[in-house]
């Protein structure tokens, strides 16, 4: 029992080992080479900074997390609606899809200041930027998923005189779910990028503005503390989406071995 647990945690152990080694190397290098604090702080200094003001960091993290989650949720809802519309209308396919491709080729960070003009300096422009950056991968993958349906399955629906809505809900959407999830895994990271960009251009709250304020006072340690929190947040969010995928797609090829256990 213990040995199987030991074997199963092999990946986690190697990750931990590499992580600890790199941090140790970083700490040693900073100390031995006497690197100045505003160039590169030691890992221990970052932890101390976090430790001193936990309430402050929790508040900033919560704000950025809220913006990211809201942006992501809106991107998924809107993206799916757009994908369904694009798949069901030749006109929207030609117009909306092309428009989205054009939109995506503009560096969206360039549009961020406009959102501040339009939506003010509250949470709205940040959510809007997060949605704008995250939505594209959802739409592209969802359209692909909704389209890549077995034509024979659609024939089966037709000879059963199925309504379009039933075809969408019972065949197209479940078939597209694996694609939608791979789009969502990209989108969750993009939503976080959008939230930070939003905080960079307009913000007094959030980890993005923490970094900006730290920069103006050469408080590199604080900037690193915020970056560390962002890294943890991004990783956790990504794995949450993956968890949801595993839970919703036990039937998919990529999940089968784990779902059935004995079928390898």
């Amino acid at each position: 029992m213990m040995s199987t647990l030991w074997q199963r945690s092999e990946r986690a152990r190697s990750v931990a080992l590499v992580l600890i080694a790199s941090i140790a190397l970083w700490e040693a290098a900073v100390r031995l080479l006497e690197v100045r604090k505003f160039i590169l702080p030691a890992p221990s200094a970052i932890v101390v900074d976090l430790w001193r003001e936990p309430a402050y960091f929790v508040q900033q993290t919560a704000y950025t997390l809220g913006t990211t989650a809201l942006g992501f949720a809106l991107a998924v809802a809107l993206g799916l609606a757009l994908a369904v519309a694009i798949v069901h209308s030749r006109f929207l396919d030609r117009t909306l899809y092309t428009f989205l491709v054009v939109l995506n080729s503009i560096p969206k960070v360039a549009l961020a200041p406009l959102f501040v003009i339009w939506l003010g300096t509250g949470i709205e422009p940040k959510v809007a930027i997060a949605v704008m950056i995250a939505i594209f991968s959802i739409v592209i993958d969802a359209v692909l998923g909704l389209r890549s349906v077995d034509p024979e399955a659609l024939n089966l629906a037709r000879v059963s005189r199925a309504r379009p809505w039933a075809v969408l809900v019972k065949i197209r959407l479940p078939n597209a779910l694996p694609y939608i999830f791979s789009g969502m895994k990209v989108a969750i990271s993009f939503a976080l990028v959008g939230a930070i960009v939003g905080e960079f251009v307009a913000g007094e709250v959030g980890l993005g503005s923490v970094i900006l304020q730290a920069q103006s006072t050469f408080d590199t340690t604080r900037a690193f503390a915020a970056i560390l929190l962002l890294g943890v947040m991004g990783t956790v969010l990504f794995f949450l989406v993956e968890l949801a995928e595993r839970w919703m797609l036990p039937w998919h090829v990529s999940q089968r071995a784990e779902a059935t256990g004995h079928h390898v």
Partner: peptide, 12 residues
């Protein structure tokens, strides 16, 4: 009722 060459069973 139609039976196609492939079974077209839905995986999910």
């Amino acid at each position: 009722g139609v039976v196609f060459q492939r079974d077209i069973l839905l995986d999910w």
